[in-house]
Amino acid sequence: MTTPAPEKTRRRTRPPKRAHAAPRPVLRIGFTGWIVSWLIPTAVMGGLLLSLGLMPGLDEDGFLAPLIPLIGAAAVVVGIPGTLLVTWLCRHQPSPTVHILGYAVVGLLYGPVVLVAGAGGLVPMLIPLIGFPAGILLGLGRWMAQPLTRIQDTSETLETKDPEND
């Protein structure tokens, strides 16, 4: 008795890869655009806290004044690496909405930085007071920096650096 030959199953196959796939365009934001999208919203947030702290009656307990250095620390520790990471991760997404939402998420991460001051008392309640406005402001800052961005077609760059044509 012989064993039957195995039947080949019909399975899905991947489409063949093209040998010369076209490179994707890259969204570039310069140093000025990044400064507009990160520094201006952070300065506005610090100015808002400073103005709220100077208003009589709002800062009777004195919990707004110590938040200004925390916003500065959040901007340096979370904001700089976060915005640079979002810019790098989303560089192949030409849609500005993706970048704006990424910057808003980085701004939301400003909130938990207040826990450095201690997790007791009213401090955990300050997380949304810092995070939501910072998220909105960083998203608006990235939206304001949109005219300072450009979409670079990488195929043009490859054509100019082709060693066979030199």
Rank of each mutant, 00 (worst) to 15 (best):
V106C: 08
I68C: 02
P69C: 09
L109R: 05
P69Q: 09
G72F: 01
L64W: 06
V98C: 10
I71R: 03
G111K: 03
A74Q: 01
L108F: 05
V86R: 05
R91S: 10
T87M: 14
V106E: 02
T97M: 14
V86P: 00
P94I: 15
G82Y: 06
L64N: 04
L64G: 04
S95V: 15
L70W: 05
F63G: 03
G82T: 06
Y110N: 00
L64F: 06
Q93S: 15
P69F: 08
G111Q: 00
V76Q: 08
G102L: 13
I100E: 10
Q93V: 15
H92D: 12
P81S: 10
P96V: 05
A74P: 00
Q93E: 15
P81F: 12
P96T: 08
G102Y: 08
V77T: 11
A104V: 06
I71A: 05
L64S: 03
P69N: 04
V86S: 05
I80H: 04
G111D: 02
P94E: 15
G102M: 11
A73C: 01
V78N: 03
L85A: 12
L70S: 05
G111Y: 01
P94C: 11
G102D: 05
H99S: 09
R91P: 08
V98M: 14
L109A: 08
L64C: 04
P66Y: 07
I100N: 07
V106L: 09
H92W: 13
L108D: 02
A104P: 00
W88C: 06
Y103S: 07
F63A: 09
Q93F: 07
A65K: 05
T83P: 02
I100Y: 03
G62E: 10
P94G: 11
T97R: 14
A104H: 01
I68S: 01
L64T: 06
F63Q: 09
I68R: 00
Y103M: 10
W88D: 09
H99Q: 12
P81T: 10
L108N: 01
S95R: 15
L85M: 10
L108V: 02
V106K: 00
A74E: 04
L70F: 09
A75Q: 00
I68N: 02
F63V: 14
L89I: 13
V76M: 11
T87L: 15
I68V: 11
